[in-house]
């Protein structure tokens, strides 16, 4: 049996699991709640004729990072660890199928499920921006593309944690803590130390909204030093578009390779 076909079989059943377990539905409902709340607030409180299209678009794009993190947690957190915790691995693993096909099959299903959620959000974002400004500019298309690169890399990192751990719940909680707190703290520390946080995925993903800054894509300062006191400065870093893409690609490649190797050798004791 072909490895690729086996991988697609795993994808199919993993995706079915997301549908049956109502995880996909739950995240779609959360997305719709955010979208509806935003549309209502804009209609009631914002006078869009005084806002630039990029500024309006940036406000729409900001919650996408949060949604992508949620999607990675929902669909990737326990994808591998859960096989060990719930003992479904005793059914799946003793078969003539490579672990790589299992991991990548699950990854594809997670990506597709996440992509559906993100696409729903983007559909509303595009619709609302077009409704008010009658244009979809290149910055928006850039941000749209980058959001999927961020999803790819974040899912790969989530799969790495899921491969490392044997408990699905612990994997989800740990990944949530890392994404919501650790990376934010790392980014904040860089402001005080003056060291560029190129090793932070959320730093790389900040280009999602940075594309809306300035007169053209990439027209923003990459480093700003503010003198706060006689011996104290705060440094704000922004990655260039290329740096942001490189950081996310590096996360994707390194995490994917490590997750594959770890799962290949992982034992079911």
């Amino acid at each position: 049996m072909n490895d690729f076909v086996q991988m697609l079989v795993i994808s199919k059943y993993q995706f079915k699991n997301y549908i049956r377990s109502k995880r996909l539905l739950t995240l779609i409902l959360i997305t719709l709640a955010i979208v509806i709340a935003y549309i209502v607030v804009v209609h009631i409180y914002v006078d869009t004729s005084y806002m630039e299209v990029n500024s309006f678009a940036k406000d729409w794009v900001s919650p996408i990072s949060f949604l992508i993190i949620l999607a990675a947690l929902f669909f990737g957190g326990d994808a591998i660890a859960g096989e060990y915790q719930t003992k479904t691995g005793y059914f799946l693993l003793p078969n003539p199928i490579r672990r790589e096909s299992i991991l990548w099959g699950k990854y594809i299903a997670s990506f597709l499920a996440s992509a559906i959620v993100i696409l729903i959000y983007w559909a509303f974002a595009f619709g609302d921006i077009y409704y008010y400004y009658k244009e979809i500019n290149s910055a928006l298309l850039y941000s749209f593309s980058i959001s999927f690169l961020f999803l790819l890399s974040l899912l790969a990192l989530t799969y790495l944690f899921s491969s490392l751990l044997n408990n699905g719940t612990v994997a989800i909680v740990l990944v949530a803590i890392i994404y919501f707190f650790v990376f934010s703290i790392v980014d904040s520390i860089s402001m005080l130390t003056g060291i560029e946080p190129w090793y932070s995925i959320t730093y790389g993903a900040s280009i999602l909204t940075l594309v809306f800054e300035g007169n053209y894509i990439g027209d923003y300062p990459t480093k700003q030093v503010i003198q706060v006191g006689p011996n104290f400065t705060i440094t704000t870093f922004n990655p260039t578009i290329n740096e942001g893409i490189a950081i996310m690609l590096a996360y994707f490649i390194i995490s994917a390779i490590l997750a594959t190797i770890i799962f290949h050798y992982k034992e079911m004791k």
Binding site: K87, T88, Y90, P96, R98
Partner: peptide, 21 residues
């Protein structure tokens, strides 16, 4: 692995199955 397990049926411990299937 694939050649070795091709013609082997297994029951190891009491496996669990995906609950929604």
């Amino acid at each position: 692995l694939k050649k070795a397990l091709k013609d082997v049926g297994t029951l190891i411990e009491t496996p669990n199955f995906y609950p929604y299937l």
